[in-house]
Design a protein around this nucleic acid. Structure first.
Length: 196
DNA sequence: TCCGAGATTCACT
DNA sequence: GTGAATCTCGGAG
């Protein structure tokens, strides 16, 4: 199939649906004139209004303002005084939903990713196997918070036919203390590039 | 106004 | 297994 960038309408669908459909798609970005890309293999959904683990649960603040924009924006936040994590905002304006990118299978620009991660390019499995690692490999920072994925810097692309239902696994999310009962972490079953 | 915990990762023990 | 990095927010004082 011919690769194509996903339109705004994709991100406006219900959040859990977007989360599942993101698996197998490619997160692509331009950085220093080079194209970087990774296949999305693990995500987590954060449904602000229902979800005590979400930054948006208690309403809008300066930090989470981007989560309340319409779907298709990139929400990059700083945490643990150390790391950035990146989310795809979903749903209509004002909803406060997003999908956290947790792991990618590196596809393009591996030498540049490895340099940024301070890892050998041979260790492909350690370049994007965690939300903060993705940001480091793609050089995503506060500056990119609010980037429109329907623009020309970062976007999401479909390159392969959609996954079959049986290839997708759902489980509770990782690294949180509240909202543990929701099985809102989605993975490509058996993929070697998952986090943890 | 201060304190603790957090959607994490890495180096070291 | 444990601690450090040190931003942001909510709740206590």
């Amino acid at each position: 199939m011919r690769p194509h960038r996903l339109p705004r309408s994709f991100y406006l669908q219900p959040t859990l649906q977007v989360a599942r459909q993101l698996l197998g798609l490619y997160f692509v970005g331009l950085s220093r004139g080079k194209q970087l890309a990774g296949r999305i293999v693990e995500v987590e959904a954060y449904l602000g209004d229902l979800d005590p683990a979400s930054h948006a649960f208690r309403g809008r603040t300066n930090r989470n303002e981007v989560m309340f924009r319409k779907g298709g924006h990139l929400y990059v936040y700083f945490t643990y005084g150390m790391h950035f994590c990146s989310n795809v905002v979903t749903g209509k304006e004002g909803v406060g939903h997003a999908v956290l990118l947790r792991a990618l299978e590196p596809a393009e620009g591996i030498p540049l990713m490895a340099r940024r991660r301070k890892r050998s390019a041979a260790l492909v499995g350690e370049l994007c196997s965690g939300p903060a690692k993705i940001c480091q490999a793609f050089a995503l920072t506060r500056k990119h918070n609010g980037t429109d994925l329907c623009g020309s810097v970062f976007w999401i692309e479909q390159r392969d036919p959609p996954l079959k239902r049986g290839q997708i696994g759902a489980s509770p999310r990782v690294g949180i203390s509240r909202g543990k009962n929701f099985a809102w972490r989605f993975v490509i079953l058996g993929n070697p590039y998952l986090s943890r």
